[in-house]
Amino acid sequence: MIRFLKLLFAYFKIGSMNELQYRANFFLQIFQSLLALVVGVFGLALIFNQTATLAGWSPAELLAVMGVFFIMGGLIRVTIQPNMERLMSEIRDGTLDYTLTKPADAQVLVSIREVRIWQSVDIFMGFLVLVYALLQIGNGVSILDALAFAAALVMGGLMIYCFWLMITTGAFWVIRINQVVELFQGIYQAGRYPVGIYPGWIRILLTFLVPVAFAVTVPAESLTGRLTWQTLSLALALTVILMIVARLIWKFGLRSYGGASA
């Protein structure tokens, strides 16, 4: 475990130093994040121009959902997505060999190599939006709520990671799956709104197939007094199951990896 943390820290340091060379990207990222915020707020304003609540969620509560949406989106783009994109191209080009020969667990390695720290602007902005929304709601957040939020956020992130890893592992068999990135980003947009507003079959897709519900809606529920212990337990169970399944699929996929010269 200590070895894992050391490895994680080392890769984080290398990745950050790499990115820190490009200062201008930082300002570009701030600009992009602000544009995303404007679009998000504009969209909500249009909706609440016409109605007082959306499926039982008040404007401030939906703003909180948007905050969580930005936080999770930022987390995905800081670590999960760049790692998985690199994995995809390495499987295709056969350069995964270099990673597989290293004396550490390959799944760990392919999951922590890349870090795009400038993207964390989104996480920071998401927190600001969330705090502002919570002040607007004005109900206060107990320590228990905050803990539940943190737990839900971590589990949601892990589920998204498992989802990405399973899809990316598909590249061992079908090689070209670049469109998956766009496909995921399109579907993730659904998390902007609480999944409760979607019709049944879409809600099931967003809960179990692409775990957007657990990544965004559930953490937001914990801060708006909607979370039940049943939901949190279900999240825990699903996280464990997905982690195991993703691991098995990864192991299975590795067996059909040919390498560059094989």
Partner: peptide, 8 residues
């Protein structure tokens, strides 16, 4: 694939 991503 491209179109389905766009449908979301």
């Amino acid at each position: 694939f491209y179109m389905i991503g766009m449908i979301a």
